[in-house]
Design a protein around this nucleic acid. Structure first.
Length: 322
DNA sequence: ATGGTTTTTACTGCGTC
DNA sequence: GACGCGGTAAAAACCAT
């Protein structure tokens, strides 16, 4: 007989039942015989029924502190753990902070000389901290920009521009409240448009980890605060990419340009999505140049629905006839 | 919040291969 | 029968107010 066993009641079967039940409801199990809540005995690390003495739990782990505190001060000075660690900060939030009270480790006030020294240290600590925080932020954003830019087939120049835009946003404290990813994507979107090789919001959202809506919001904010000189995208800007994606001859692109010109004179383009118009122009141009291409294929390449292509290309053709 | 506009989704009939 | 195309209605998204 082990020492533990002789603590049990004669009826071992009942005790086993209680043990099985315990696994479901963790604290203060009730006695199966008396239906009374058990009391825990910290000395023996056991929980037993106050009525019949049946031991309901053994070898309980005491997760509380082993010291006693009589007021807040003691609680602070006796506890040996700090704030929870987090993975979102580079040092997991473990970095030490220079206290704001001018007291030394024993709680004595500092001399004025020491106070000045501490003040200088605080200043520099703060500078260093914010600077490095920004560096990290920027670094991460640039990595994202690079990844997305290459996924979208954008040139190095566009990446540079996006980097500049992001840096400006960072310097003007536009980041708080917005995700790095959203801002990075918005910067890239803006840069691509500025460079005259726009990608649609949908395309950007496709390679980004944030959704389209958030990117649009970040972009609007960015464009507003930084008053970026971004002209609205024109349908023509989308032509080369779609045409080359579909391996269509240059003649189609020329014809599409011509159609868009005519369309512009007829004011077909106002209020319509430029990419939809571009897709429609390409479809119409392909038909006019006897290229076999389906609306669906173009819609796929341009991320536009076939319905939109139909509507736009009908309007385009009407415009060219008059 | 709301209304107007555009785009998308889903469903339809028609013609062709 | 599958596919491309045209049309339509309703839903969703977007934008200015």
């Amino acid at each position: 007989m082990t020492p533990q066993e002789h603590l049990r009641t004669p009826d071992d079967g009942v005790a086993d039942e209680a043990t099985a039940e315990r696994s479901e409801q963790s604290d203060s199990p009730t006695c199966p015989d008396c239906g009374v809540a058990s009391v825990t005995d910290a000395e023996r690390a056991e929980a037993h029924c106050p009525e019949c003495g049946l031991v309901l739990e053994e070898d309980i782990v005491d997760r509380g502190p082993e010291w006693r505190a009589f007021d807040e001060n003691q609680r602070d000075s006796k506890r040996r753990v700090g704030a929870p660690v987090t993975e979102t900060l580079h040092d997991r939030g473990l970095s030490s902070v220079i206290g704001w009270q001018d007291k030394d480790a024993y709680g004595q006030s500092l001399s004025s000389r020491q106070r000045q020294k501490m003040q200088r240290l605080r200043t520099w600590d703060e500078r260093f901290r914010t600077k490095s925080a920004r560096e990290r932020n920027l670094k991460q954003a640039l990595v994202e920009v690079d990844r997305m830019a290459s996924a979208l087939g954008l040139t190095d120049a566009v990446r540079e521009t996006a980097g500049v835009i992001y840096r400006r946003a960072l310097e003007e404290d536009l980041l708080p409240g917005r995700s790095i990813e959203a801002m990075a994507t918005a910067s890239l979107y803006a840069a691509a448009r500025q460079a005259g090789m726009p990608r649609s919001l949908d395309e950007c959202a496709g390679v980004s980890r944030v959704e389209r809506k958030e990117i649009a919001r970040a972009y609007r904010y960015l464009a507003g605060e930084l008053d970026l000189a971004v002209q609205p995208a024109t349908p023509e800007q989308f032509l080369p990419r779609i045409v080359s994606d579909l391996d269509l001859p240059d003649g189609v692109e020329r014809e599409a340009r011509r159609l868009l010109e005519a369309g512009k004179r007829a004011n077909v383009h106002s209020g319509k999505s430029p990419i939809g118009l571009a897709a429609a122009a390409i479809y119409a141009a392909a038909m006019l140049t006897n290229e076999t291409i389906t609306q669906h294929e173009i819609g796929e390449a341009a991320d536009v629905s076939v319905v939109t292509i139909r509507n736009r290309y009908r309007e385009l053709l009407e415009a060219t006839e008059q």
